[in-house]
Design a protein around this nucleic acid. Structure first.
Lengths: 252, 252
DNA sequence: CTTGAACCTCAAGTTACTTCAGGTTTTATA
DNA sequence: TATAAAACCTGAAGTAACTTGAGGTTCAAG
């Protein structure tokens, strides 16, 4: 009968798909300690050991550490206690999943961008990636829940479109930098970018952002933490150009 | 101007949220090596270092190892080369995500079961967890794609219902074990369980399973790998009872 | 000028393995 | 039956990305 079959470590490894060194390791940890041939010390696995290994794999599948598994392995029944620890694991897994999903989205955006734009300046890419990252981090840190939730509702195409507009802006800035801020090309560049941003964000979202009161200190901090694809000089020039543009708009 | 501000490691850690030992570690790896006070060897971080740290965090967010980050950090622009490595990462993340989702589903099922049934025998729980695990593993190993896909379409409630029926079965077996297989209680137990299983699986799925040709050897292997909540004797008795039941049904 | 906070380095611990070196046992073949 | 190859053994070290700790120096405030 197969239940009485004995296996060498090689056979056992073959059947279960678990590498020999891992079996050694589990033996060392006391998780799975098979019989031994007393003269040679070779391990002899049997049917029971298959069951034990399955328990180990099951608990690993549920996300437990080998340490925890070692203790759980000897409990004969699962109580509410276990249920609590299962819930904890569930939450941990949920967080992991969310993190992974965010990374995947970010990578997809970056891939599309690189595909469509060819070579992209690394400072620019970093600033995009970082902002994607922060889009999610902000939720927790500054309770901009409403705003960020609204943002995440925007379609991926819209986000990509905005990214591309941003890339256009950086290219234009590199080209036009040095010209007077009232130059018509410069002003057109500003106009295009701001209009694209506004149309992406929408009026009510702009309102909400304006009314969100993040402490001054935090804003300082955020600003100094936000990477920019522009040199300091370019940034200053760009700010001046934007300021000029806003004044013109107000006058109209 | 804030761009000229210098930070001690403590301040820098505070501002960025990265623990001091981690900053030490990044320094050691050559990822982020700030200025030093030549007399005291104390680290002095500046605005540049914030930018570098952001790059590191961005790339970590995308799933890169610190090793890779070290090399990427010095590249000034991202090419198609990077795009390829991004795609690879994307796939890796996808796999991770799927694995996490499966674990979450399994945990949810186990939690519900424990909640609704109170204390549950551990051998039984392991066999359930293992089968959930295998439900997914089989897809790859035996190309039962069709069948398993059909299975995963079943609603969570249905799965839970089947789990509960299975629990009923194990309880009944423990109670009735020893009675003659033709005993009416025993036969009712078999009937209830088989009918629940059939109604869960549906005829066409049963058909497909029957027609799926897994090699004999593999079946042996699978069987010996599948944990059972029954003792060997109980299993034998149960098989006999089922056999008897099938004969009776055939005669009708 | 002293004391406590902040900083320094170097070493070791963590998890779940994998890899390696150097030696013994089993198994297959001549 | 001799021998060589395959399989096995142990113990140590390597991996990633940190964290923790010991023991000593420097800085800032009172």
């Amino acid at each position: 009968m197969y239940k009485n079959k004995k296996f060498s470590i090689g056979e056992f490894s073959e059947k279960t798909g678990i590498p020999i060194p891992t079996l050694h390791y589990y033996d060392e940890l006391g998780l799975l300690q098979p019989e031994r041939n007393p003269s040679s010390e070779h391990r002899i696995y049997n049917y029971e050991d298959i069951i034990t290994l399955q328990k180990i794999l099951s608990l690993k599948f549920l996300g437990y550490s080998l340490d925890k598994i070692a203790s759980l392995l000897h409990e004969s029944s699962f109580t509410a206690d276990l249920n609590e620890s299962l819930s904890l694991h569930l939450h941990a897994l949920e967080r992991e999943k969310v993190q992974i999903e965010q990374s995947m989205q970010a990578i997809k955006r970056v891939i599309k961008l690189v595909e469509e734009e060819g070579e992209v300046d690394s400072a620019l890419l970093f600033s995009l990636i970082y902002s994607m990252h922060m889009e999610h981090t902000w939720i927790e840190r500054y309770k901009l829940t409403e705003v960020v939730e609204e943002l995440s509702k925007k379609s991926e195409e819209d986000k990509l479109a905005l990214d591309k507009t941003y890339i256009q802006l950086t290219k234009a800035v590199k080209q036009l930098y040095g010209k007077p801020v009232e130059d018509s090309n410069v002003q057109r560049m500003i106009k295009d970018y701001l209009e694209a941003s506004f149309s992406f964000l929408g009026e009510d979202l702009m309102e909400k952002i304006a009314h969100t009161n993040v402490k001054e200190l935090d804003i300082q901090e955020l600003e100094s933490m936000t990477p920019s694809p522009f040199t300091e000089d370019e940034q200053t020039w760009l700010n001046q150009a934007i300021e000029y543009y806003m004044k013109q708009v107000e006058m109209e």
